[in-house]
Amino acid sequence: MAILVLAEHDNASLKAATLNTVAAAQKIGGDIHVLVAGNGCDAACAAAAALTGVSKVLCAAAPHYEAQLAENLAALVVAHAAGYTHILAPATSLGKNVLPRVAALLDVAQISDIVAVEAADTFVRPIYAGNAMAKVKSADAVKVITVRTTAFEAVGSGGSAPVEAIAAAADLGLSKLVGRELTKSERPELGAAKVIVSGGRGLGSGENYHALLEPLADKLGAALGASRAAVDAGYVPNDYQVGQTGKIVAPQLYIAVGISGAIQHLAGMKDSKVIVAINKDPEAPIFQVADYGLVADLFQVVPELTAALG
């Protein structure tokens, strides 16, 4: 068996999600090749070559891979798909965008968001916002898979796989990037953070969100997250959202502040190791999954907690 992993990177460095995806490939077993498609992406290729378990890195460098557009990336993967039994990408906004295109062009099903590998053709994936786990078997010759990164522990590095330059596919010219507005933050990435402080509508406003949760997150070295309600209300940008259709997280510690706990939110954080819920409503569903629940006025206890952390 040979597995192709589509790397997620920003040319200069590899995104952490790639490490978890390689870990999932290791569970399947076989020769693992990582495809880095970018522009001036030598540093990302070198990082991929060092990952444990990777036997080869394929580097496709061209200006039309700079923006990571789905049409061009999918065409490239398909052009180099021969010989692979599995094609994997992380279930991030990149993988979810590109991989179904690859699957359709290969005329195979995609298995989305796997959380476990049962056999080379059998995988477990959540359905209904994680309220059920389906074990699915693929009859296709090539398995195209996106990987839930929190379900697989990142591989280490220390290897030295060869990097092979491969030919770029033609630029399809179907779409172009106009611009990006990326949230700038010194905090850890939400998907990879060990501690997350997350806020909901209970905070009442964006000002309160920042005034109360940022000092707490600073003390804990935490990433900041939010419920859909808080994002919809405009307290924070969209990329803060944790939930079924936002980010799926599983930190060591998740502190939910003023979040009631809709099933769509729980779907995104219930695999966290320790969950703390702070909410003034004792009936809030968030308490049903919390290890430690504090029924209190968040405006009083959050500053207390921040102070107690010294």
Partner: peptide, 10 residues
Amino acid sequence: EIDGGLETLE
């Protein structure tokens, strides 16, 4: 809506 924020495509 992408992981790091927003991007605009044509």
